[in-house]
């Protein structure tokens, strides 16, 4: 029993799930099954996704944030490093619509320009963590036994270390450069993906078609990457998407602690540099924070939507 309503032993077809929505009438003739043509999986997926209002909202928000980041600079060409007004000019001023920071730089320009770095750090750190996670998780899940045990110990080790503290150490030891920050975030945040990949591999490697490929003489590497990985990919892709969100939060946290790359404008950096003047100029911290919040929220909504669309059974939750 996996749902709130117990399914009794009489089947109740959920109207939301039957593609043909013609009114159902008691049929006087024999109780034969009306053949229902199953839709193509991609179509079915798109339909399920489109029915999910919050997923659509997420998609719209995400597109909006992308537009702000990649098209915005062409329409709002103010230099984010240049002093345009008095320090702490409140929003609605003549020179800076969203106010200025502690040295008079335009907050809107910072937000418009800083998105690129924030998204880039998020995406590349997430990519690194997902690649590490998939490698470790797939090997552990595929081989099992002592290899699995050893790799899971390593995973456990990284889960026990507070990721942020380790990343703080790495960045402060190796310098607050964009590359260091990306690598540090990637290195400390892979364990969850590894666990997910491992679980998927353990499930799939027992399936018949894997056994068939093995009998046909496929090598392990081929089995892992060409046979099992494609089947394990959908949930991992969702996880990768969500990892972008957490990497963005991570980068913001590092910047807030003064460990952002001071030469690259990012949303976190604006907050980090202005946080001491928070009570004099709330907008310097609030507005970039909203940008981060909306972006991560959009990513979560879309990720959840994809997840639900991939698992129709959980859809009614």
């Amino acid at each position: 029993m996996t749902d709130a309503t117990m399914e009794p032993d009489i089947a109740v077809t959920d109207p939301a799930q039957s593609p043909a929505r013609q009114p159902r009438q008691p049929m006087p003739d024999k109780g034969m099954e009306v053949p229902q043509k199953p839709a193509h999986p991609v179509t079915e997926f798109a339909r399920a996704f489109a029915r999910n209002q919050s997923a659509i909202l997420g998609l719209v928000l995400l597109i909006a944030m992308f537009a702000l980041t990649f098209i915005g600079p062409f329409f709002y060409g103010v230099d984010p490093y240049e002093m345009v007004d008095m320090p702490f000019a409140p929003p609605g001023g003549d020179y800076a619509p969203l106010g200025t920071d502690y040295i008079g730089r335009d907050i809107l320009a910072g937000i418009v320009t800083g998105g690129k770095a924030t998204l880039a750090v998020g995406a590349s750190a997430a990519f690194i963590s997902v690649v590490i996670g998939i490698l470790i998780g797939s090997i552990a899940g595929f081989f099992g036994g002592w290899i699995d045990a050893a790799l899971m110990k390593v995973t456990e080790f990284f889960q026990i270390l507070p990721a942020l503290l380790l990343a703080m150490l790495l960045v402060s030891v190796f310098g607050a450069k964009l590359l260091t920050i990306i690598l540090s975030i990637g290195i400390v945040s892979w364990p969850q993906t590894a666990r997910l990949a491992r679980a998927e591999f353990m499930r799939i490697r027992k399936l018949d078609y894997v056994a068939a490929a093995r009998t046909a003489g496929a090598k392990n590497a081929y089995l892992i990457f060409a046979v099992i990985l494609p089947a394990a990919l959908p949930p991992l892709i969702v996880a990768a998407g969500l990892a972008v969100g957490s990497a963005i939060l991570f980068e913001a946290g590092l910047s807030f602690l003064g460990l952002g790359d001071p030469n690259v404008m990012s949303w976190g950096l604006i907050i980090g540099q202005n946080r001491n003047y928070l009570l004099d100029a709330w907008w310097t911290v609030t507005l970039p924070g909203i940008a981060i919040f909306v972006t991560v929220l959009a990513i979560s909504l879309v990720g959840d939507g994809i997840n639900d669309a991939l698992n129709p059974k959980l859809r009614r939750r």
């Binding site: 919050s54 924070g289 991560v296």
Partner: peptide, 26 residues
């Protein structure tokens, strides 16, 4: 709850703190 949980998870925790700080200090 669904909405709140997504929001709670999407806001950077230090930012939530800063917002509360603004609210409760001034």
């Amino acid at each position: 709850v669904t909405l709140f949980s997504l929001a709670g998870y999407s806001a950077p925790v230090f930012w939530t703190g800063l917002m509360l700080l603004i609210l409760f200090s001034s």
